[in-house]
Design a protein around this nucleic acid. Sequence first.
DNA 1: TCTGGGGTCCTAGGACCC
DNA 2: TCTGGGGTCCTAGGACCC
Length: 422
Amino acid sequence: MRLLALVDCDNFYASCERVFRPDLKQVPIVVLSNNDGCVIARSKEAKAMGIKMGIPWFKVKKSYLAQGGKVFSSNFALYGDLSKRVMSILEGMVKKIEVYSIDEAFLDLQHVQNINHAHEFGIYCRNTIRQWVGIPVRIGIAPTKTLTKVASHVAKNTSGGMGVCCLSDQKDIARILKTLPIKEIWGIGHNLSRQLNQLGIYSAYELMQMDIRLIRKKFSVVLERTVRELRGESCIQIEDHCDPKKQIVVSRSFRGRIENLSALKPLISNFAVRAGEKLRQEKQKCSQVSVFISTSRFNQQLQYRGFDSFQLPCPVDDTRSILMGANKILNTIFRKGYPYAKAGILLSHFSHSTFLQKSLFEAKDQRHLKQDTNLMQTIDALNDTQTQVYYASQYPARLSPIQKDMVSPKYTTNWWELPTTK
DNA sequence: TCTGGGGTCCTAGGACCC
DNA sequence: TCTGGGGTCCTAGGACCC
């Protein structure tokens, strides 16, 4: 039998914060989103205190801190670096691996003979990562991706299993699916869960028993795949190469509210500059730039969402052209008198840098379009070091509207923030 | 007072073609 | 006068993921 494994880091961001703070071993830890807005990660102890995922920080701050909890602003430089270390260990262990997110990877266990061997591999894998990086992981092993997710869920909720759960026996699988609510299944979100409940389907087992044709007809091929995967039929393959991105988004909520166009402009420019950098890292060019601005979802009285796109006459990766497009759109979608809470930029319609499609009406269309690869390479190289080159419209220079009050040091990615010992 | 950010895939429907 | 059928491509919107 072909077996797959899902390696999933426990409470990843909270665990990362703990790696260099052994004094926080038993202490509840939460990590906050940008602007210290929501709780986006919780240690086991914080979960036990009833802190919910995604809850606004201001709602729980007082009682959480009073009970001795520790809080961190998000430190993605640290999390990204520790993630790389975990993934590179896994890459050394198997031939085929899909890094699915910052804290998860699917492995193809083609080298594993049987389920006992798989379990041993899981334990070995877990111990190695724990020892070499200091991050605890749990491992779900099963014949399909969806079932590895189930196994990982079981591994999380049973303390005796050493964080490794193997699911290959049909009877075992059926027994577990009977107790698993459908909303816990990978691929079934809030909406599908509600719709299925209306049809009287509550457990994963009931879903698995449903008629495939009915699923396809009433829902979609996506849910059909999920059902087949629950039955042990592998439909979702391990993707061990990553496809080029199809869009790049840079967006942020603001700490306060912004009403003026003049205050919004430099922020949008900052997003555009960052998006341009990402685009060039991906070695892509885009021919569509979109901008959105919106008021708070939670402001019942005054709501407005502005969104529009600008088509560039040919694909570019020059920040100046992106800025030009972004600025034009911002002027058209901006409405006076609204307290804006969030904005962003979206680049799309990509083509690879080396296959450049020329416009038929080049001379006319491209008069205002700037594209200078050497200039962009130079600016990127300078910004990679201490030097910072800004575009005029970013004024005031990269002044961040983002607040991070409680961020830990970049222990592993900045020379000046290395951990020290006495 | 204060509510994250960045992605993917699928489908329906419209425009257009012969 | 009578006005079909089959296909592709694109986009917006909805659903999901971490």
